[in-house]
Amino acid sequence: MTSLLHFIIGALVTALGGCYYYYTQAQNNTMSDEAKNAKSIYDFTVKDTHGNEVNLEKYKGNVVLIVNIASQCGLTKNNYQKLTELKEKYGERGLKILNFPCNQFNSQMPEGDGEAMVCHLRDAKADIGDVFQKIDVNGKEAHPLYQYLKHKQSGTLTSSIKWNFTKFLVNKEGIPVERYAPTTDPMDISKDIEKLL
């Protein structure tokens, strides 16, 4: 009985391992050359909410928290409030929060870029840091930055972003060192931020 159980467990582990291998190979094949060749987040250029190009090298030497945000999610109010608190607490010590609006999860980020986004955040009293253009974080059209982040810090079972407010913590060298679930309260990341500062 015990040997049969060991055999079944071994077969399951082998099967899952094979599935994971082919999944990661598929993920690597959908990564852009930019994401594959990147050494840090500093190798990426993104667009701010007004369409201006921003080279992420401007954040060199800072601890960075990258978040995919949404306006109409059940997690929005708490995350906006706590991200604002994080910025107030650590902003002058070198924490930068980079926010990427994303409409891929139940269309919960309907606001447009530019003034519409600025007005939304102002009305929500969300002083959450730098805000960039709306992007995809999953699928073939996922922004290369997010392809890189997911490659460096895989999630549970798959590397896909599961929902709004997934958070990536990046050290002063531009390397993603931790990934947090959407339900992780931003203030619970404080101890990890302090270690990197």
Rank of each mutant, 00 (worst) to 15 (best):
E34C: 03
S40L: 08
A15Q: 00
A116K: 15
K58F: 02
Y42T: 06
L16W: 14
V64I: 13
K60A: 15
L83H: 14
N103T: 06
Q72F: 05
T84P: 06
D43L: 13
Q108E: 11
A70W: 03
E141Q: 15
A126K: 05
G114N: 04
G112F: 11
T30C: 04
R179P: 04
R179M: 08
I97S: 00
Q81W: 11
Q72T: 01
K152T: 12
K191M: 08
T156N: 01
S40Q: 09
E115C: 05
D48Y: 11
L169Q: 07
Y22H: 06
I66Q: 03
N106C: 00
L98Y: 09
Y42H: 13
L157D: 01
H120L: 13
H143S: 01
G129H: 14
N55R: 04
Q108V: 06
C73T: 12
Y23P: 00
C19S: 06
I161H: 08
Q81I: 09
S154Y: 14
L4D: 08
V46Y: 12
G155W: 14
G91I: 09
D188F: 10
I128D: 01
K152E: 10
Y20S: 00
Y90P: 06
M117P: 01
Y148R: 05
I69R: 03
Q153L: 08
Y80W: 13
S40M: 05
T49E: 04
L56R: 03
C73E: 07
G10W: 15
G155V: 13
L4K: 14
Q133C: 04
D136R: 01
I175G: 01
E88N: 14
K96D: 00
I41K: 06
K150P: 10
E178S: 15
E194L: 09
F165C: 05
Y22V: 07
N68P: 03
N28H: 06
Y22S: 00
I8A: 15
G51W: 05
F105V: 01
K140V: 01
S107L: 10
L56D: 00
L12F: 15
Y21L: 09
D185V: 12
G129T: 11
S159N: 14
D123P: 01
D130N: 13
S190H: 05
A70N: 03
T84F: 12
V170Q: 02
P101T: 05
L95P: 04
P110C: 11
H120C: 11
G17W: 14
E111M: 12
K89L: 02
V177H: 06
G129L: 13
Y20F: 14
H6Y: 13
H6N: 12
E111Q: 15
G91Y: 09
N171I: 14
L121P: 04
E88L: 09
L149W: 12
Y23T: 02
R122W: 02
L98W: 09
Y146A: 02
